[in-house]
Amino acid sequence: MSPKIKEKQKPLLEVVNLKKYYPIKKGIISKTVGHVKAVDGISFSVYPGETMGLVGESGCGKSTTGRSIVRLDDPTDGDVIFQNKNLANLSKNEMRKLRTDLQIIFQDPYSSLNPRKRIGDLLAEPLRAHKLAEGEEIERKVNNILEIVGLTKYHKSRYPHEFSGGQRQRIGIARALILNPKLIICDEPVSALDVSIQAQVLNLLKDLQKEFNLTYVFIAHGLGAVKYISDRITVMYLGKIVEIAPTEEIFNQPRHPYTKILLSAYPVPNPHMRNREQIVVEGDVPSPANPPKGCAFHTRCPFAQPICREKTPPLDGENHQVACHFPLT
């Protein structure tokens, strides 16, 4: 268990058996002939103050998971329990109120800011919509948040197109932060940025977490950023979770073959480490519309056995959970 998580602490967010299916329609009367199982029954918990990394290749359902948690997508099935409330049962109005505690930062800083609004309005709007402040207080809060994310109040009268990608991402962070949320879903917040800017934004996120005791679900497809910021990491493959473990354990002792493969694709700066074990996967990721039976990874797994084709392995374990019939040791 991560050092940050105290014994018997209650999770801030619990995702239970979450499913998100998209229907595939065909034919003259648009009959539903199947489903794309973007997220197929996943469960995990996030504790206050920690950062949960969520990694996997494109199309594994990690972004859909993030969007389903904040209800930008309506889940097909399953529960999202946040602060002891099941978001699935909340009315539209209750959900709207709860959103002050539950925010999201988007991947593309170019499309996440309304191009027709000045930065000052973009940041004041959430406060007005939730009646959290009035008049001069709004002004003060906006100025303050701009400073916190490394901009100045002189930027307020500008439009988004006048900023660089990194600056825009800072504005996006400020907008999420101004509502004083408890949990922020970071949906690949740095992958659209230049490498030099990535570190700055990651540092900002880390500092903000310390300062405001934020909890993050940090979604990324690369392991670099995740390793840097996460306390624990969840690895997803084809809409399912294959492994959840503290960051160090994931990197030092991965137990699922897929995790191991992901790691071997992750570049190591130390040249002496270059001759570490390389595993090469064969084939492509199968279509989520027609996922393989049994363990979804068996088509590409170098260690697959007959049982892997028959039975779906459950996610097992206490602090280090893994979904594999033959976990690595």
Binding site: K141, T152, G166, Q200, L204, F212, N213
Partner: peptide, 19 residues
């Protein structure tokens, strides 16, 4: 609860490379 209106602490300033 953290209050974003509190003055900045010193350690948080480090990451705020003004761009």
């Amino acid at each position: 609860l953290p209050n974003i209106n509190e003055p900045l602490t010193k350690q948080s300033l480090e990451s705020k490379t003004l761009v």
